[in-house]
Each structure stands twice: as C-alpha cells, then as structure tokens.
Amino acid sequence: MSAVVDSAAPETAQTNQHYDLDPRIFGLFLDPRRKYSSGYYREPGLTLAQAQTAKLHFVADRLGLRAGDRLLDVGCGWGALILFMAQEYSARVVGISPAGNQHAYIAGRAAELGVADRVSTVQGHFEHAALPDGPFDAVTMLGSIVHMPDLGHVMRRARSLLRRGGRYYVSESCFRNAAARDEFDRRSGTEFVRQSIFGWGDMRPLSDLVRAAEDAGFSVISVDDLTDDYRQTIDDWIVNVDANAESIDRIAPGMAATLRRYLEVANAGWGYTTKHYALVCQRSR
C-alpha cells in the first residue's frame, strides 16, 4: 500500500469533517464492508450487506471489468469497492481519498484479504493529486463528484487517465431538474448537511453531468435510475443508527441524533426534489 499526501487547493471542497470521524462510528451503521453509497435492491428480501454486494457486482458489470484490469476509484472511502474488485475480479486497483484515517484501514483490510499486492491508495484530492501513470481501464466515482466544484476539470482528468475504450462510472444524487436545484439548494435541511456533515457539496441535475461528460469527450453508454435503491439503503442505515445509538454516542456524544437527522434529510426528497443515477461513459476516441 502506498499513500501520496497532497495539500488541498483553495477551490477544492473540504469533506474531512465527516470522513475523519472515528472509524468505529461507520462500522456501527454501514454494512460490514463499510460501503458508503447506494446498495442495489433488485431481489426481494435483501439485507443491507447483500444489497451492497449486489451493487458492487453491478458496477463491475457496467464497467465490463476483467481480471488484471486497472481501476481508479475516486473517493474510495473505506475501500469497499477497491477491495472487492481486487478480491473478486483480480483487478489492480488504486483508491484516492483526502481522509487520512481511511488509508490505514484499507491497508489493514487488504493485508487481511490477501490482496495487498493489487491495492494501493493515494491521500489527496482528485483534482490535483499526483496519481500513478495511466492508462486505467476504468475510473469510478460513487458519491464523490458532488464534492468537486470544477465539474469540467474533473471529467477531463478522468478521461485523460483512461485507455481508449475505457469506462467511467459516476453514481450521484442529483436535484431532479434546475428548478428544484434553485428552490431547494439553500433550504435548511440542505444547509444542515453541508454545515454539519460534509462541507461543500453541489447536487447538480443529471443534465449537468451528461453535458460535462460529453464536453470532456466521453460517449454516454448508459444511465440507470437508482433512486429507490438509495432510499432503501438509507432506510437500512437509519435502522442501524437507531439500534446502535448508545454505542455511537459513547464514541461521539450526540452523533446518533446528528446522523439520523442527516439521513432523514437525505431520504426526504427522493423522487420529488432529488434522484440518484448511475452514469456510465466511455472514452471511445
């Protein structure tokens, strides 16, 4: 495992206030892999853990991932995706995240799973961090582009790192249109999530993501609506927060209520003000 430290530029969003919380907190409400994005509930009766595993297979399928492929995961979190792709698909993976405590956790898990030779991480912000030389076969951003102010730069850089024919997967929560963004972007719930949880974030409409991808030179391959899947994911996270509230508050007093409010805000607007999409693009030329 390797880490490259990179200082944040002024225009780079700061999100560490949330991700640098005690790692034990995330273990108390996420699934065992600590995957912090939407699951995939397309079969009845799936548990949170099963839905998250299904989502990882879904991502691999959308990417056409094969053994030996190189994958870069931007905003790798606790390593759920990169560890899974290394273990289940024999991919060579790189994760990047600005949150320092995530890297030691990933290194430990990679060693435990016997995939340390295929897993590396970079500490920093994707916009300007030093990254291993390309080309990569795939680049993924699951819930991370929302924290990146310069959408055009991000997508151009992602494309530059891909081989010809390589695929770019972005899953993100979006305001359902520009009017909803204008109306709800500064509501109290949205501001609470910004100020108390993540820091800067912009839930752009899907049309903005598609336009930026096409302007960067990508061809759009598919768009999947995962709104209901994310609603169910958050419902399951809330159940876990409630079940483990005392343990969470022993680590960080008052955190259980803060998490519950954040998750309730996130689930309040699905289908009305917000949607969740998976956008897959290809560097065709």
Results as ranks from 00 to 15, higher is better:
Ser2Asp: 14
Ser7Met: 11
Pro10Cys: 00
Gln14Ser: 12
Asn16Val: 14
Arg24Lys: 14
Phe29Cys: 01
Pro32Arg: 11
Arg33Trp: 13
Ser38Arg: 09
Gly45Tyr: 12
Gly45Ala: 00
Gly45Lys: 11
Thr47Gly: 06
Ala49Val: 05
Ala51Ser: 07
Gln52Cys: 11
His57Pro: 03
Asp61Trp: 15
Gly64Phe: 10
Leu65Asn: 00
Gly68Phe: 15
Val74Cys: 00
Gly75Phe: 01
Ala80Glu: 13
Ile82Glu: 05
Leu83Thr: 03
Arg92Pro: 14
Ile96Asp: 02
Ala104Asn: 07
Ala111Arg: 13
Val122His: 07
Val139Tyr: 00
His147Asn: 01
Leu151Val: 01
Ser160Ile: 03
Leu162Arg: 08
Arg164Ser: 10
Gly165Thr: 11
Val170Met: 12
Cys174Gln: 02
Asn177Lys: 14
Ala179Val: 15
Phe184Tyr: 08
Arg187Val: 09
Phe192Gln: 01
Trp200Met: 06
Asp202Ala: 03
Met203Phe: 15
Met203Asn: 07
Leu206Arg: 07
Ala216Thr: 03
Phe218Pro: 02
Asp229Pro: 05
Asp236Asn: 06
Val241Leu: 05
Ser247Cys: 10
Ser247Val: 11
Ile248Gln: 04
Ile251His: 00
Gly254His: 03
Ala257Asn: 09
Arg261Met: 05
Leu263Thr: 04
Val265Ala: 00
Ala266Gln: 07
Asn267Ser: 11
Lys275Ile: 13
His276Glu: 10
Leu279Phe: 08
Val280Gly: 02
